[in-house]
């Protein structure tokens, strides 16, 4: 479904992402993990289209999307939940989620102005789908509250509901568990597991190894912008290179003390 090949991105002299390839098969939940500064977020933004790669290609459903802007990618069926929660202020939770429907709706200024038939039809569909997405994410109660008034965990979930309202074929998640409390983390894991069972393809970029290994079938490990390991979750957990990348530095520090 998603195929990123040889992605490279430099910032000045620093190579943040160096020749990285990841893929998501249809119906798969693939994971990308790595310690802080491994280049996860850069990789995510390259795939999401918010950054242009200096090398490599991204294709989606057999189509090269390397140069497509994010709104076009959304229309193709790629939905995104950011790490830095990007909710829209002054809008209710329901309205925030409804924005996600831009991906599959069409009516514009004139049709809205004149309340033309397509506007009426689409607005009905948008509301229905948004309410469904909210229920699915367990936020039905919060529909009429202002999005920015919710606690962080629920704001993350609103983002996921917004992504679901887009009726995506692929969902990209950037560190969805960071900053969440244990209970919120459990609910998020349940939600993602449920979506996977419904057949949604997902790419989960996450710092927390335990969180990803529980959910993802296949994991790519980044360190210093490069892929250092790749394979099924069980194998990754025991990979010495991965353990070294995550624990190595603290061990060095412990030795030095």
């Amino acid at each position: 479904m998603l195929e990123a090949r040889g992605l490279t991105r430099r910032f000045g002299g620093v190579v943040a992402v160096d020749d990285v390839s990841v893929g998501v098969a249809a119906g798969e939940l693939a994971g990308v993990i790595g310690p802080n500064g491994a280049g996860k977020s850069t990789l995510f933004h390259l795939i999401a289209g918010h950054l242009r790669p200096h090398g490599g290609r991204v294709s989606f459903a057999g189509r090269d999307i390397t140069r497509e802007p994010p709104d076009r990618r959304a229309r193709l069926g790629i939905a995104i939940a950011f790490q830095a929660v990007r909710l829209f202020r002054g809008m209710t939770v329901l309205e925030n989620v409804m924005v996600g429907a831009h991906a599959w709706t069409h009516h514009g200024f004139w049709e809205a102005f004149l309340r033309l038939p397509r506007h009426r039809r689409e607005e009905g569909e948008i509301l229905a789908r948004a309410e469904r997405a909210l229920e699915r994410a367990g936020l039905g109660e919060a529909a009429d509250r202002l999005a920015e008034s919710l606690p962080l965990g629920q704001q993350r979930t609103v983002q996921i509901a917004r992504a679901l309202c887009a009726d995506p074929r692929l969902l990209l998640l950037d560190e969805p568990a960071s900053g969440l409390r244990a209970g919120e983390r459990e609910r998020l894991a349940d939600l993602l597991r449920g979506l996977k069972e419904e057949g949604l393809s997902m790419l989960l970029v996450e710092h927390d190894v335990a969180f990803v290994t529980r959910l993802a079938s296949r994991i790519t490990v980044l360190d210093h912008g490069r892929v250092i390991a790749e394979g099924p979750a069980e194998q990754i957990r025991d990979d010495p290179a991965v353990i070294a990348a995550y624990l190595g530095r603290s061990r060095e520090r412990a030795d030095g003390a």
């Binding site: 999401a48 918010h50 802007p69 994010p70 709104d71 959304a74 229309r75 939905a79 995104i80 950011f82 990007r86 909710l87 829209f88 924005v99 996600g100 831009h102 991906a103 917004r162 887009a166």
Partner: peptide, 8 residues
Amino acid sequence: AGALAAGV
């Protein structure tokens, strides 16, 4: 950025 990602 958020709006773009939502397809706006």
